[in-house]
């Protein structure tokens, strides 16, 4: 066990954890930030997507010891008042069915839009291909990303 000082959603947090503990479980179990979801544990489904210095990463596969001073952003800290253009677009399109994967979808899409403000359909599909939606809301996810891009 070791102590780690982490910058999460703009706040400095200290946790005591085994070095190999994935950030996913640090967030969920140690910091009580439940928005980041457990889906597969092997970076295949995207449900646990967070930003590490603005880049989308699968938090299930990032050990706490590798984070250092990099800033972590979770769905809880994506935007003040939860009014990121993507969150607003998700409202407009009422995207979710079960909703479990949606935080990961939004976080992944946010990273896409921050590096490519007006992605093509193919670029959206390629960027979002690592995020599984078992309910099959892909039509609405794509539509919402287009809406958000148009509003940014």
């Amino acid at each position: 066990m070791a102590n780690y000082s982490l910058n999460i959603n703009g706040q400095q947090k200290t946790v005591e954890a085994d070095p190999d503990t994935p950030m996913l479980w640090v967030l969920r179990d140690l910091l009580d930030l439940k928005g980041t979801k457990f889906g597969c544990g092997i970076a295949q489904c995207g449900a646990c997507t967070v930003h590490l210095d603005g880049t989308a990463v699968r938090s299930c596969s990032v050990p706490v010891s590798a984070v250092g001073e990099n800033k972590i952003t979770t769905i809880e800290g994506l935007a003040e008042n939860f009014d990121h253009p993507l969150q607003n677009a998700w409202r407009e399109h009422d995207v979710p069915q079960c909703g479990y994967c949606q935080a990961g979808q939004i976080m992944n899409a946010a990273a896409l839009l921050s590096r490519n403000a007006s992605p093509s359909e193919t670029e959206i599909e390629t960027a979002m291909n690592g995020n599984i939606c078992r309910c099959g809301t892909y039509n609405k996810i794509k539509a919402a990303i287009n809406t958000a891009a148009a509003n940014m």
């Binding site: 928005g35 457990f38 979710p96």
Partner: peptide, 23 residues
């Protein structure tokens, strides 16, 4: 009439919503 999912806000803001979130 089309009405938004009543859990939409919880889902897109990451609030504890699912069984796995319960503690």
């Amino acid at each position: 009439t089309s009405q938004d999912n009543v859990d939409l806000e919880s889902i897109i803001s990451g609030k504890p919503t699912f069984g796995i979130d319960f503690e």
